[in-house]
Design a protein around this nucleic acid. Sequence first.
DNA 1: AAGCCGCACAACCGCGACAGA
DNA 2: CTCTGTCGCGGTTGTGCGGCT
Length: 287
Amino acid sequence: MGRAPCCDKANVKKGPWSPEEDAKLKSYIEEHGTGGNWIALPHKIGLKRCGKSCRLRWLNYLRPNIKHGGFSEEEDHIICSLYISIGSRWSIIAAQLPGRTDNDIKNYWNTRLKKKLLGRRTETPSGIRRIPADFQNVKVVGGPSQTLSSSAIERLQLQKQLQGQKNSPFSFFNSTALWPKFFQTLNSTNALAITASPLHEPQPTTQESSSSINLDAELHELLYGKGSSTSDQMEYCFNEMKGDHEEGMGWWENCAFDGSSTASLWDSGSALRPDALLHSCALGFDP
DNA sequence: AAGCCGCACAACCGCGACAGA
DNA sequence: CTCTGTCGCGGTTGTGCGGCT
């Protein structure tokens, strides 16, 4: 038995929204709010639409202060940096870009930004360490045979590529002198290893994600050499920031994010890693 | 002018998480 | 504890448009 549909598929309209439908939805929500129930909302206002469709339409197009297109260079950097750090968590990335929606960013990334950045690979200056060709067949020690996800490979490629570019906004990661003081209190070698571990996943909750930790550790070693695993330092770094470390928090609060974005980063703290935090911090850091 | 193709964007779908009964 | 309904997310598909042949 499959999942019950969220609405009567036969009686809902699909496809593009008409201006009349938009107007109906917009005026109702502006006046009454969503009422905390999207499924019931279309019935209330006489729209033959699925509640989920209404929610999407409101969030992506009708709510106030939505920006479309025209992504700035700075936004590109933010998207790219966060993508490297946390992958395709579009809602978290969107939370750092006021006025942008996860759908917009996802589309922008998939259709343009990815090509723009990864398309540069052929222009990568010589001497930059390339991703080994056999990454796709990396085996997990003591775990099931497993390959890297295409997203992980993509992130790895981006990370290595951008780290090597002179005057890249990401050259930040190669110079500990440019880091916030808080991070400089860590041993610089260890701290560098923290930033250089783009694929380290959050605490595992299942056997499967436990395997991905092993996989990432091995990958990390492959890229950065033996003994560079710094899970202890990562944990220290994360706990320090979490634990209201005076200097770290002080800096954090002064970074370029507004209050709500900062809160949203902390709210999702369990999903973010120290390296992700550092990447994110870098975005607001102006040396 | 017509057909084809690729791109960009809007919208849909299915699933996991979560809250409340 | 289980079930049910809803939300939110990320992946995928559909569609329109412009450029090219």
